[in-house]
């Protein structure tokens, strides 16, 4: 039985970098050989969600949304556009961060089984990616002691699950005790990322936005809001000192190579036979093997 992985992401009509992480993670998984086919699909680029299923030849298709939280896209747009038959959000039986997968067919393609997975952003392994992002930006594989960690989300403007995902990972990382402090901050609600230094006692704070791709929010808004630059076009220092605190700004967590592992884990939990690809990809992308 052949199997395909379809990674669905937002993409952009304006910003070519939006789809870059999707392509990169897809390539890592292609190289692992875990799937007969790997295909990217986008809301704003091509192939569209609407037409991607017809481009894969496999009978078993694992669809993994490269989105940070459960909500409008994962619950309404993607299932509607993929034409998943009989989709009901209840099938995920989720509390807002616990969607795993459900198995359906799609009216677009006869004879294929579609395993529709929860978004990468709420998977437990995402906590590891956030920590790894902190390691990457500080260049210190042991980073933690003496450091604060801020996990930044968009906020509840449109979707309460967006904040739930941020709190979920913040709590999980805090419980490990690795960082002196771990806080959830937001762009458009309290506590706001603008005042990052106020929420930490540590002299050094790593700021990791839970966003899939770098773009307007992560490259322009957040750096300017935090005050690590006056004009995003001039860039910013890492670390940059704001009100006496060294801010280590990591950019979108979704660009971290270890994200490929989260995609694989989602598909594996939905029943994909990925062999030992998870441990191989973790090793390759700097993750901890075998945990």
């Amino acid at each position: 039985m052949s199997q395909a992985l379809v990674i669905v992401a937002h993409g952009s009509h304006l910003n070519p970098d939006s789809s870059t992480p999707t392509f990169d993670h897809a390539d890592t998984i292609r190289a692992s050989g875990a799937f007969d086919e790997v295909r990217e699909a986008f809301w704003k680029e091509e192939p569209s969600f609407r037409e991607v299923l017809r481009t894969v030849e496999a009978d078993e298709v694992y669809v993994v949304p490269l989105f940070v939280s459960e909500g409008y896209f994962t619950e309404q747009v993607i299932p509607r556009e993929l034409r998943l038959e009989g989709w009901d959000v209840e099938q995920w039986d989720s509390d807002g961060t616990s969607a795993s997968h459900t198995t359906l067919t799609a009216t677009d393609v006869a004879g294929k089984t579609v395993h529709y997975c929860g978004p990468v952003g709420t998977h437990d392994a995402m906590s590891d990616v956030i920590v790894q992002r902190a390691e990457s930006v500080t260049g210190d594989p042991e980073v933690g002691e003496g450091f604060g960690l801020a996990v930044v989300g968009h906020g509840t403007e449109r979707n309460e699950n967006s904040a739930k995902a941020i709190h979920y990972h913040t709590d999980r990382i805090r419980e490990t005790g690795r960082f002196d402090e771990v806080e959830a901050l937001f762009m458009d609600e309290e506590p706001e990322v603008d005042d990052v230094a106020e929420f930490f006692e540590s002299d050094d704070v790593v700021v990791v936005p839970l966003f899939i791709a770098d773009g307007f929010h992560t490259q322009e808004d957040i750096p300017e809001d935090m005050g690590i630059t006056d004009d995003y076009r001039e860039g910013y220092d890492v670390p940059a000192t704001v009100d006496g605190t060294n801010v280590w700004y990591a950019g979108a967590v979704g660009t971290e190579p270890l994200m490929a592992d989260v995609v694989l884990e989602r598909a594996a939990e939905a029943g994909a036979n990925v062999g030992n690809a998870i441990s191989r990809v973790r090793a390759e992308t700097g993750g901890v093997v075998g945990d």
């Binding site: 091509e46 192939p47 569209s48 037409e51 991607v52 017809r54 481009t55």
Partner: peptide, 14 residues
């Protein structure tokens, strides 16, 4: 071809 012009082969064949 499917990377240059996504889904065109599938739609053409249909």
């Amino acid at each position: 071809v499917d990377f240059f012009y996504p889904a065109t082969v599938a739609n053409w064949h249909r």
